[in-house]
């Protein structure tokens, strides 16, 4: 079994939900990322989404855009991000790492080279925002050959016929985007999320993670009732942004612990 399958199986057995924080690799600087990843795991993260910085993050709101800009100021390339994962793996061989980013850095490296490097460095899954299933059959096949899962997004506007098509390409888990709009937007409609996630479950047995708009313990708690995993993106990145450099890991750790507590509360 893959690390992703292991984590979800163990959580399911324990009757718990996964907490998946997102941070942008190299933000606020490259030396912080690996310690930050360890701190998040220690505070209760089950899986880490590591953002690959991109010059034109079209699907992201201002918070994650700024994180990308800070990382790019340190020339954090896809290759360097893979190096960070390898460094993380020296001490943690259990926590799954999913890379999240845009297509072009991967296109530039080439699918085969990316997949073999990513597998060797210990990457478990890849979510490429602007790679819908229609355009990435070959990419999915190459990743699969290297034992890497391809995570896909589903959105409130995705029609049922398309849900079926997307889940057929997906592995690892499904990432349901609980909001219209870019990352970090407001207004989460919990009842609507519950209905949509239930509809997705008609099409797949894969775990369903829910993200976009999880900003505090209360929303995390509510989402945990619905999904198999709670994804926390902009809120985590905001904590990175607002913390002095020597307190980043501690402050993000505190946030994760608080969310963990809310998710596990009976």
């Amino acid at each position: 079994m893959s690390r992703i399958q292991n984590v979800f199986a163990a959580l399911r057995q324990a009757g718990r939900k996964a907490l998946i924080p997102f941070v942008t690799a190299g933000d606020p600087n490259p030396t912080q990322t690996v310690p930050l990843m360890h701190a998040m795991v220690k505070s209760g993260a089950d899986l880490i989404e590591l953002g690959v910085p991109f010059s034109d993050p079209m699907a992201d709101g201002p918070v994650i855009q700024r994180a990308s800009e800070r990382a790019l100021a340190h020339h954090v390339s896809l290759r360097k991000v893979l190096g960070m994962v390898a460094e993380f793996r020296q001490q943690d061989n259990r926590t799954p790492v999913v890379l999240m980013g845009y297509a072009n850095p991967i296109e530039a490296m080439g699918y085969e080279q990316f997949a073999s490097l990513a597998a060797a460095r210990g990457v478990d899954g890849v979510l490429t925002v602007d790679h819908p299933p229609e355009e990435c059959a070959e990419f999915v096949a190459v990743l699969k050959r290297h034992g890497i899962d391809t995570i896909f997004l589903l959105s409130p506007t995705t029609e049922p016929a398309r849900v079926q098509r997307v889940v057929e390409s997906a592995s690892g888990f499904i990432y349901y985007v609980s909001l219209r709009g870019v990352t970090g937007a407001a207004h989460l409609d919990i009842a609507d999320v519950a209905q949509k996630v239930a509809a997705i479950r008609q099409h797949t047995n894969l775990p369903v993670g829910v993200g976009f708009g999880v900003r505090d313990a209360a929303t995390a708690r509510a989402i945990a009732e619905i999904g198999d995993a709670v994804v926390v993106g902009s809120r985590t990145v905001q904590e990175v942004e607002n913390s002095p450099e020597n307190e980043v890991a501690a402050n993000v750790g505190k946030l994760i612990a608080e969310l963990r507590g809310a998710i596990d509360a009976k």
Binding site: L72, N104, A108, M109
Partner: peptide
């Protein structure tokens, strides 16, 4: 320029070796 992906299509695209525009 190398082939790349930006703004919803695959085209010849001015980028650095890391695929940043």
């Amino acid at each position: 320029a190398k082939v790349g992906v930006l703004h919803g299509n695959k085209v010849y695209l001015m980028q650095d070796e890391d695929g940043q525009i």
